[in-house]
Write a protein that binds this DNA or RNA. Structure first.
Lengths: 145, 145
DNA sequence: CTCGATGCAAACTATTTGCAGGCAC
DNA sequence: GTGCCTGCAAATAGTTTGCATCGAG
């Protein structure tokens, strides 16, 4: 535990950036959560813990965390960008119900092969992928027509 | 050719919505393009053809076209949402270079099986998927370290 | 005719940015 | 001490919406 803070520290050190209490608190908050979160979720979550960190700092910190591989962008919902922590988690994809917005995560190992194939065929260095499947959950199917 | 207009007409008729010159022009413009476009691209494209259609109408029309299956959302770039026409095209996925933004499209038939599996396992009715792979193109690899 | 659609401009809202102090190093 | 960071508030920019008018059915 806490190795996300190590990664943060190294990431910052390597670029002569500062390890501030704000950045640490943001990472702590992110890894304390187990859901998809928006900037506002983070802001309010921190606030509830008496940490007054401005939205601006969160907006400025998130790109660093994306870049450091600690956090990933999931998708957009209601105009907001949703994120999730990725470090220490199996890579997974998202299946989303269009009616109720429910999100199910699932593993898809076959995509590694796709990546490898693309790298070979097109000469790309592939860093990652994002698969979002959309449909209707069983529950909404029975409700809807 | 022109069957996208047919689809539009049917879609609107089925819901007692009106087949307006604006909606027709928007669809024509979309299918005349062969790229990923933003609302602004559409607006300016129409304008160049002397069709003065307000952005508001475009914003109001796009959800209909998404819903009718004529258009798909591709991803966000520079804060704007990018779309593409999907009707009449093989389904494909996107490989995107993080450095230069270049986008390569590729087919991935294996994803059909993934959809089928999910539908079976989770009871979802699956409507579609979006796979975005990110990496670095050969060109940018040689430039960057 | 009637009501849904359009254009305009104002409203919203997520995100970005300039600036004056603050603090990690 | 120096320069990167922070918070604040103002600025941006994409998208949405209210309203008067227009026109498809």
């Amino acid at each position: 535990m806490g190795s996300e803070l190590e990664i943060l520290r190294e990431y910052l050190a390597r670029r002569n950036m500062r390890y501030t209490p704000e950045r640490e608190a943001i990472v702590r908050e992110i890894f304390a959560r187990h859901d998809h979160f928006s900037v506002d979720d983070l802001y309010l979550g921190l606030r509830k813990k008496r940490r007054r960190i401005s939205r601006a700092s969160i907006y400025r910190t998130l790109p660093l965390l994306l870049n450091a591989g600690l956090v990933g962008q999931v998708f957009q919902e209601g105009g907001q960008t949703l994120y999730e922590h990725t470090y220490g988690h199996e890579h997974h994809c998202h299946l989303r119900c269009q009616e109720c917005g429910q999100v199910v995560e699932f593993a898809e190992p076959a995509l590694m092969e796709v990546e490898a194939r693309l790298a070979k065929e097109l000469g790309y260095r592939v860093d990652g992928h994002k698969l979002e499947v959309s449909g209707t959950c069983p529950n909404c199917q029975s409700k809807g027509r």
